[in-house]
Amino acid sequence: MSAVQSTPETREGWDGTETVSPSARARKRLSSPGASTAAIIIAVLWTLPTFGLFLSSFRPEEEIKNNGWWNWFTDPQLTLENYREVLFGSRTELSTYVINSVAITVPSVVIPVSLALLAAYAFAWMKFPFRDTLFVAVFALQIVPIQIALVPLLQIFVDVGLNGTFWPLWIAHSTFALPLAVYLLHNFMRDIPVELIEAARVDGAGHVKIFGTIMLPLIMPAIAAFCVFQFLWVWNDLLVALTFAGSTSDVAPLTARIAELVGTRGTEWHLLSAGAFVAMIIPVLVFLTLQRFFVRGLLAGSVKG
C-alpha cells in the first residue's frame, strides 16, 4: 500500500527516508495525548445520560421524584423496588410481554431476510426481462411511509380474519422491511467479484449451488448487519404494534407495556428508568452476539492471487 502512495503527505514525511501513509498519519495524530483526552471527554459526556438513567433506576421512588441522580453521591440509597414493580407489579407478568416481543420480532427478522436474500440474488446475478425496472420499483417502495399504509392494511387484516394474532405484525414488519433489505443485500451481492461466480459456473454449479455455497458465506456480514437493524427496529416498534396487535396481553409487545408503566395519569413515571433497562437487555445481547460478524472484512481472502 504505502509503496505506491505519492500524495503530498507522503512527501512531507518526518524525514527524507521514511514515507508515512495518510492512515498512519491519522492514527498517529489521533493517538496523541490531546486527542485521547478529547476522546475520553466525549465518551464520558456521551455515556453520562445513560449512566444517570442506570443509577436512577436503582433509586427509591421519593428520591427520583424529588431530585436528580447526581444527588446519589452525597446521599447513597439503592433499592431494587423499581425493578420488582416493573417485573412483577402488574396483573400480567412482564415475561408475557417479553415473550410476545420475541415472538413478534424473530419471524419479523427471519421472513424478510430470507425473502430478500433470494430476491437480491435474482436481481444481482440472474438475467430476466425488466430486471432493472423491477428493481427500481422495489426500491421506490421505500418511499411509502408506514403511516399511510396502516389503516388500509388493518382493513385487509380484519377482512381476512387475521386480526388478534401475530400474523398482521409479521406480515406488516416484513413488508416494510423488504425494499431496504432487497436493495442492501443486492448491492452487497453485486460487489462479489464476477470471477468467483464464473469459476463456479465453469465447475458446473447452478444458481442454487452458487447461492448456497458462495453468496451466503460471503455476504454474511451484510446479513448480520441487516438482522441487527431489523431486530432493533421491530423490537422498539410501538406504532405498528399498537395498530395491529392492540394492547391485550395475548399479543402486545414489551414496548406497549413500557409505554403504560407511568399509569393512567402519569403518577408512576419513576418506573420508566428501570423499564428502559429491562427492555434493553435482549437487544443488547443480540447486538453483542451478531456484531463481530459485520466488523470483519467483507471479502477478506476470497480472490487472492
Binding site: 424473530v106 454474511m220 448480520a224 438482522c227 452476539t289 451478531l290
Partner: peptide, 19 residues
C-alpha cells in the same frame, strides 16, 4: 465461513426456539 454462518443462524433463530 460455515462456522460463521451457523453462528449467525443461531443468533437469528435462538429467539425462535425461545418463543
Amino acid at each position: 465461513s460455515n462456522a460463521r454462518r451457523s453462528a449467525v443462524a443461531t443468533g437469528c433463530v435462538l429467539g425462535l426456539s425461545f418463543f
